[in-house]
Write a protein that binds this DNA or RNA. Structure first.
Lengths: 201, 201
DNA sequence: TTCCACACTGCGGATGACCACAATTGCTGC
DNA sequence: GCAGCAATTGTGGTCATCCGCAGTGTGGAA
């Protein structure tokens, strides 16, 4: 259903092939690109899995490619490979959010383990992001006034108080409140609060 | 009120003094130790600020010291300094949660900037941890039955339904519910949900 | 102009939440 | 045994919520 997938960006065909083969034996599919430019041209916001990125490549380097991905809002974990890395480079990459930073020659199993952790991490991210997308689409259905009322409801205020603050009648607040519950698919203010505040219990 | 504080662990007195002086000019206080052992012996769970940790020291290394801190549940950001670090060492430290990893010779201003970011980050952590501690102490005051009822209340169920599920009368549920609100310092189920689900809006 | 979404309001009733008053049972510790 | 806490239940009343029914007004789209 959700195939594990690694995006391999390296200008060395031997590395690409070796990695692809290695990952296949561990049940992870691969897509390969021979340059950062090529990968970036193909990249879409809905890409999932992880990125294995060689640092030293002709033209655009892996680090530059990473920066572009960050600008574009990429969410996939990025694993760097390098033969000539130094400490500041590794530190900088990790602090920017890279998933890992491995030096060549690397242990095959170690790399595959890292890739698997990365794709699994991405799968978890996708799952939580999906729930969030549902929320956003529901919130988008609310009228401005409904959103306003919803926020006040979420503070635990009585309808009477909300009515006073908005200078409208209690009945109107009730109507908005009811519509909010209906559109958000909940049956009480508590459920709404839980929905808008995930990760609990 | 909350003095910015750096814990400097380095067996080179010249470095300790230089760092202390540098930080003082930027309004950050320092405490210094000449070995990891000495620092660990003094360490208390309520230490705050940040740790500046040299990696190569006689006896216990900075990395070993870091591991001990992690076991003990240290929360302070740890900044590593090293003259002979390598990439795997830096990557390992950062993935374990180190705040930064700097190579000597380092730029004075850069280090001070990092330290300041670290102590500020710790101050934020302390603030949120404090709120969480308040929560925990309040939750600790609840009886088992009250906690049980609270969880059901937080699902948005009616008192009647909760009563059925626990095989008790509605009146009893009301009493527990009321005590929960009282002990948790809230006035409605929505406020309770907000309290137990921070970081929203 | 007609239709429609949105905001607004009132009335009255059913249901749920909350509370003061009052009380019983069981267990723990002095 | 008695004090104290936790859990339990009932009565009766007040306040809040929820909802159907009914209606007004406004601004934008067809």
């Amino acid at each position: 259903m959700n195939p594990l997938l690694a995006h391999i960006v390296d200008d060395d065909e031997a590395i690409r092939d070796a990695l692809t083969w290695l990952l296949r034996t561990r049940n992870v599919a691969s897509r390969t690109w021979s340059s950062a430019e090529e990968f970036l041209a193909a990249w879409q916001p809905d890409f999932h899995g992880c990125v294995v990125l060689d640092i030293r490549m002709r033209e655009m380097s892996g680090l530059e490619c990473f920066d572009v991905l960050l600008e574009r809002g990429n969410n996939m974990p990025v694993i760097f490979l390098t033969g000539h890395g130094d400490v500041p480079m590794a530190v900088g990459a990790l602090k920017k959010g890279a998933f890992d930073f491995l030096e060549k020659p690397f242990d095959d199993n170690a790399l595959v383990d890292v890739v698997i952790r990365a794709v699994e991490s991405d799968a978890r991210r996708m799952a939580s992001q999906e729930a969030q997308a549902t929320m956003s689409s529901r919130l988008a259905q609310l009228t401005p006034r409904e959103i306003e009322v919803m926020h006040l409801v979420l503070t635990g205020k009585f309808n009477k108080v909300i009515a006073d603050e908005l200078n409208i009648s209690m009945r109107t607040v009730e109507v908005h409140r009811s519509r909010v519950f209906e559109k958000m698919g909940v049956r009480s203010a508590v459920e709404l609060a839980q929905l808008l505040a995930p990760g609990r219990d």
